[in-house]
Nucleic acid binder design. Structure first.
Lengths: 112, 112
DNA sequence: AGCCATATATCGATGGTCGGTATATGCTGG
DNA sequence: CCAGCATATACCGACCATCGATATATGGCT
């Protein structure tokens, strides 16, 4: 699973949201580092719905504009939890190894 | 950065390794869930070298077979550290939101 | 009047990964 | 004794998620 997809599911983890809301939420969550393109977002929403990870929650019209709200399915929540755990473990492994390497290099330079 | 690329850099975080060693290391690190294809690995090694994140450390011949060892550059270590931190934060956000959602749902069902 | 935010949708291009194939050596089980 | 597997690098076409751009429409701000 790629980062944009992961962040879309994360945006839906605690409440239903509509497409545009997901876009801004993802940008905020990632401190502006991940700007979802409209193409990416709506293609991903269709795909994730086909895969059964999200579903259409409800729709409403605001200012003559459609808002289509999506929510996580149980499958989606399970999948996201598994993916989050994988990310956490990978991040931990990388940090541990980098730390080990810095210690080794410091020792080699005679630094206490 | 995609997961395979991240894991390749992680494999090199604490010591130089050759291609095939990276492949087995990545599989072990991810509990067998990520099996690097030869095509992915060697293409990624070329690309990462061009980008300045890794470099050829040294080469040796074992059993008439070439072993080309790669190591992280300073740039690569910096990049990997930043990426690991991003992964950690994203995983944390997803887990926090999922937890919040479970509490809300439990309360809605009248569960203490 | 012009621009930006809101909101969804579609389309071609890009690029990292997948899956397979090629080449070569050495070890091991049947 | 030879077939298969592990080791080791390399290349290629295919796939698909994402990018970047464009389209359409409304409302608010300057």
């Amino acid at each position: 699973m790629q980062q944009p997809t992961f962040l879309i599911l994360t945006a839906l983890a605690d409440r239903p949201q509509h497409g545009y809301g997901i876009m801004t939420d993802v940008e905020r969550m990632s401190d502006g580092s991940v700007r979802l393109r409209a193409g990416t977002l709506y293609a991903a929403l269709d795909r994730l719905r086909e895969e059964g990870f999200i579903q259409i929650d409800h729709e409403e019209i605001v200012d003559a504009r459609l808002r289509r709200y999506y929510s996580l399915t149980d499958d989606g929540a399970t999948r996201l939890a598994a993916e989050a755990d994988r990310l956490r473990r990978h991040a931990q492994t990388a940090s541990r190894r980098l730390r080990a390497s810095r210690i080794t290099n410091a020792a080699a330079r005679g630094v206490s």
